[in-house]
Amino acid sequence: MIRKERIDRGIKVRSDDIYAISSYREILYLLLPRVIPVLCLLLLPTLLGSYYERVIIISCLMGLLALSWDLLASIGLFSLGQAFFFGVGGYASGFFSYQLGLPVPYSIVLGTVSGALVCTLLLAPVLRLKGVYFSIVTLAFPLFFVRIIESTKILGGTEGITGISPIGNSWIELYIPIFVFLFSLFGLRRLINSDYGIVLQAIRDNDRAVISSGINVYAYKLECTFIVSLLSCFSGAFMTHIYQAVGLSAFALDYSLLPLTSAVLGGVGTFAGPAIGTFILVPLSEFLRVFGTLRVVFYSVILFLCIVLLPEGIFPFLKRKYHQIERFVEV
């Protein structure tokens, strides 16, 4: 009889410790899964042509949303409204660029930072909420902004702000999102495994024990929210300049659903998972463009199937397979 046998390569375990890596083969083994995607991301756009450049830019920006969603989830705050951060960042840079006439780099930086401050300030009172209650608030926030802008007619009202200056240089337009995305991806993966990140994870598991360990949980949540807001607002701010316009659609459900779906598809809490998820979903949604609004239905179907049937996600699955040897043995 033939049976399939799975053996752990054991490199992962060793590389986590000091007496780690013994040969070039093992170094390569650990380096390749990191280097290849990075190289692909850096080289593909020039190889594929300008249509795909667009797709890659958008993937990176949406990837930032997904990464920041995942960071928020790491402290146990599950957001149903990533569009809130995205929209605030978008409007902030639109405001600086169009209404104050600042040049593009300034409007992006200022838009990101001030947007992040606004988001953090608005979320500060609700960070104490747990479980569904936080999700409910985040679901309400983008809608709230839409209604406020609609009824007060500020920031261009229902029309939005148009005629915002473009970024200008197509290299910058392409490589800034890529670099920010890669930097955030690897930075966050490092952060979450540092002692600081351990505390964040502990807050998600059980915040009362963290409190009784002498840690100000609220301060951590605040810091984390600020990082999350920075990343997401940057995404919105940059997108505003790419589209040269920002409107109420920046608060649309798409921008809440896409990061959420990416994270669940790729594997919550791994950062690499949400990144992989976005690079599957964004190109997919480009192909689905012909179906119009059916796109959102596709997202929700994927989200539904993933959460119910594949709670683990793609990345943890791939990782496990990569670190195992499979072979057939005679029994």
Binding site: G292, S300, V301
Partner: peptide
Amino acid sequence: LSEVVSTFALGVGILEFFRW
């Protein structure tokens, strides 16, 4: 999280399907 997300996805799916 999963309860919220799965029911939310179900709801969005139904609504957006009718929109389409």
